[in-house]
């Protein structure tokens, strides 16, 4: 009798084990799935809304009308430390605040697994910045989807483009208004050096992992992008004295500031 119970238990255990094994196959740990990086543009603790007033760390009142940026060269770091690099021809994205669809970045074909970090570049890497015209398609085409995000005279992409008005800014002679413009680019030059304002962002997921499963919907990495960070840390920007920044030396300050504007808020898995 005791033997029977034992045998039955054993059989059940074996059965259960088989099920688990089967389940493992179906858990979606083989194959690929997309990962969505949701760029949630914010101004401090608030949602970023164009036409609304916000305060910078310096105490300036700023009102935004444009916020565009390139992010590229995504790498996903697995929980074991190994890395998956998104292929070059699918790794360039242009986020435009006024275009909601552009704020959802879909990284396609990510191998199933658990990931603990996302790494990317703010801007367009130097190799792509000097690539032949035939390799500058989609958002990298300055005559097409990338229009307005390219400097023709100091050839290269504008990595981050921020525009707006501020009562603290002086009246701009050309615009006739109190405007600010921070257009930041420069990849370091080809044969002769220029500034290099490329910044790498590392977003760690903390305790929650990005669980990529081929049999579940794509996970979403909810990322906050705080535009006010561009005005502070490490250097407070005074809109009155520096209302404009393009390809000059001050762009280094702007880029150092915005390097930390991306933070990971949470991961949303569909398991």
């Amino acid at each position: 009798m005791k033997n029977f119970i034992f045998k039955t238990l054993f059989a059940f255990s074996a059965f259960a084990l088989t099920l688990t094994a089967c389940k493992k196959e179906d858990e979606g740990l083989s194959g690929t799935q997309s990962v969505i990086i949701e760029m949630d543009n914010r101004a401090g603790d608030d949602e970023l809304v164009f036409g609304k007033n916000y305060k910078t760390a310096n105490g300036d009142t700023v009102n935004f009308s444009l916020f565009n940026y390139y992010v590229s060269n995504f790498v996903l770091v697995k929980s074991d430390g190994s890395e998956y690099t998104v292929p070059k021809d699918e790794c360039y994205f242009l986020v435009k605040h006024e275009d909601a669809a552009s704020r959802e970045i879909e990284l396609k074909g990510i191998p199933a697994g658990d990931y603990k970090a996302v790494r990317f570049i703010i801007g367009v890497d130097s190799l792509k910045s000097i690539a032949p015209a035939g390799e500058r398609t989609g958002v990298l085409d300055p005559t097409g989807a990338g229009a307005g995000m390219y400097w023709s005279w100091n050839a290269g992409y504008i990595f981050v483009k921020v525009e707006g008005t501020s009562p603290q800014a002086p009246i701009n002679a050309g615009a006739g208004e109190r405007i600010f413009q921070y257009h930041t680019g420069l990849f370091g030059g080809k044969d002769s050096p220029t500034l290099n304002n490329l910044k790498t962002v590392n977003l760690s997921t903390g305790s929650e992992l990005i669980e990529v499963r081929s049999n579940h919907e794509a996970s979403t990495v909810h990322t906050y992008v705080n535009i006010l960070e561009m005005f502070t840390s490490p250097t407070n920007i005074n809109v009155a004295t520096n209302p404009l920044s393009h390809a000059g030396a001050f762009s280094k300050t702007v880029a150092n500031n915005y390097a930390d504007m991306f933070t990971l808020d949470h991961v949303h898995n569909h398991n």
Binding site: I130, A133, P142, T143, S152, W153, N154, A155, K190
Partner: peptide
């Protein structure tokens, strides 16, 4: 000033200027 390091992108400069 050597502002354009790639021949393919010369034309954009005078077009936009």
């Amino acid at each position: 000033d050597g502002g354009v390091p790639e021949m393919d992108f010369i034309a954009i400069n005078p077009i936009e200027n």
